[in-house]
C-alpha cells in the first residue's frame, strides 16, 4: 500500500522535528499503541493494536528511525508481526516551514502487509492504512497543540 498526505502542525520546524522523535509523544500519538520502548540506536520496540471496525489485531513491532536529516526529514522503518499477519514498510516524513509559526509535514508510506490479514482483509486494508495515518497525524497535531 502506498499513500501520502500532508498536515499543518503548530510549532517551529526544529521543535517539531525533536518532538517527532520523542518516544512518549509517539506512544500517545500512535493509534492503539500499548507499549513504546526505546532500545537505543534510534530503534524502538512497540506493541500496538490496529484494526478497522470489528477487525483487530495485536502486533509486535520494531521501528527504526533512519535517514535523519534534521530538521528536514527522516524515515521510519517499521516491521510488525502478529497473529493476523505481518506488516513491514517505510514511512518517509519531511518538514518544511509554513505560514507563521506553522510547519508543514508531508508523509509518504509504502507499507506491505502479508499473511492472513492481506489474504482476507483486502477490502479493508487500504481503509485501515488511511485511517491509521489520519488518526496518527490528528493525535500528533493535538499533542503538539497541547504542549
Amino acid at each position: 500500500m502506498i499513500g501520502e498526505g500532508s498536515i499543518e502542525l503548530a510549532g517551529g520546524q526544529e521543535s517539531i522535528y525533536q518532538a517527532l522523535l520523542d518516544p512518549q509523544l509517539l506512544r500517545r500519538a500512535i493509534p492503539g499503541c500499548r507499549d513504546f520502548e526505546e532500545r537505543g540506536d534510534s530503534r524502538y520496540a512497540a506493541v500496538m493494536e490496529a484494526g478497522v471496525g470489528p477487525i483487530k489485531g495485536t502486533f509486535k513491532a520494531t521501528v527504526a528511525v533512519t535517514d535523519q536529516q534534521p530538521p528536514q526529514s527522516y524515515a521510519l522503518q517499521v516491521e510488525g508481526q502478529g497473529a493476523p499477519g505481518s506488516v513491514f514498510g517505510r514511512i518517509s516524513i519531511s518538514l518544511a516551514p509554513s505560514t507563521a509559526g506553522q510547519t508543514r509535514l508531508h508523509y509518504v508510506y509504502d507499507v506491505s502487509v502479508s499473511g492472513k490479514i492481506a489474504m482476507v482483509g483486502q477490502r479493508m486494508l487500504d481503509a485501515a492504512a488511511k485511517m491509521v495515518a489520519a488518526q496518527f497525524f490528528k493525535r500528533l497535531h493535538e499533542e503538539l497543540a497541547a504542549r
Binding site: 499473511g115 492472513k116 492481506a118
Partner: peptide, 14 residues
Amino acid sequence: YDESGALLSGTFAD
C-alpha cells in the same frame, strides 16, 4: 500477489 509476494486473493470475495 503483490510485489512483496503477499497473497491478495485469499477468500471467495477476492
